[in-house]
């Protein structure tokens, strides 16, 4: 396959950045998108140019490190992570535009790499349980109804990749925060801090300069883990409950 790439190049956070065009020949349809970028970087290195910086780690779709906007869609045309996207999803001769996640809360470090520390700070604000640690308890020591366990698990599959923010027209991180609130709020271990958790996480989200949610639904549509949009309503229910109890 012959592919023309338009890749966002930005030297550092303060650099203005621009799209650079590269041509690749002999791209195999079986390559993953990241392998195709590896090929580009080998070529650039041999030509004495600076390789394109991009985040990646497991390349199995479970760590959430990779993630770029491909032709205007977070993680590209398939509903999976960028590493699990393959070149067979494109056609010979295609021009593909690759951009980083774009949000003020996710400053570009270099090229396609953004700093997602804002997500860590939202988690630090309340996305945890304060439980005594020790050996793992017996699986049946604390019964959890099956529908609750399923719902918690669906939300827990969030890998914090940031595609929701990248796709949101408001650059809101609502789906991410809502996934965490739903995940912990459905389980008995999450109950003691449930009321304060949602308030603290929302406050931190606002402080990080994420936008506000207007229920457009782009986030859930691009989420590689299929986090359902109804987690946002769960968050709003928890928030209304907390505020009416005077928490926060």
């Amino acid at each position: 396959m012959n592919i023309t790439l338009r890749v966002w190049r930005q030297k550092g956070t303060d650099d203005e950045g621009r799209l650079a065009t590269y041509k690749l020949t002999d791209v195999s349809p079986d390559m993953s998108f990241l392998e195709m970028l590896d090929v580009l970087n080998e070529k650039l290195t041999l030509e004495g140019e600076d390789p394109v910086a991009f985040d990646h780690d497991c390349r199995e779709g479970i760590c959430g490190a990779c993630g770029v906007v491909i032709d205007g869609e977070a993680h590209g045309p398939e509903r999976t992570t960028t590493c699990q996207l393959h070149m067979r999803s494109f056609k010979d001769g295609d021009t593909i535009t690759v951009e980083p996640w774009r949000a003020k809360a996710f400053p570009v470090i270099k090229d396609l790499v953004v700093d997602r520390g804002a997500f860590d700070r939202i988690i630090q604000a309340g996305g945890y349980i304060s439980a005594p640690t020790g050996t793992a308890p017996d699986a049946h020591a604390m019964p959890v109804p099956k529908p609750d366990a399923d719902r918690a698990f669906d939300a827990a599959t969030c890998i914090s990749c940031g595609a929701c923010v990248a796709a949101c027209p408001n650059a809101s991180s609502m789906l991410f925060t809502a996934a965490k609130v739903t995940h912990l709020g459905m389980l008995p271990q999450g109950q003691p801090e449930r009321a304060s958790r949602v308030v603290k996480m929302i406050n931190q989200q606002d402080e990080e300069d994420f936008g506000g949610c207007t229920n457009i639904g782009e986030c859930a549509a691009v989420c590689p883990k299929g986090i359902p949009l109804d987690t946002i309503s769960q968050l709003n229910r928890d928030l209304l409950g907390s505020l009416s109890k005077g928490v926060g």
Binding site: R6, W8, L19, V69, D71, G72, E73, T97, E99, R102, A103, K104, A167, P169, I216, G217, E218, A220, A221, V222
Partner: peptide, 11 residues
């Protein structure tokens, strides 16, 4: 920080 290429998926 606007996207150069932007596509509506679900909206």
């Amino acid at each position: 920080q606007r996207y150069k290429v932007n596509k509506r998926v679900a909206r």
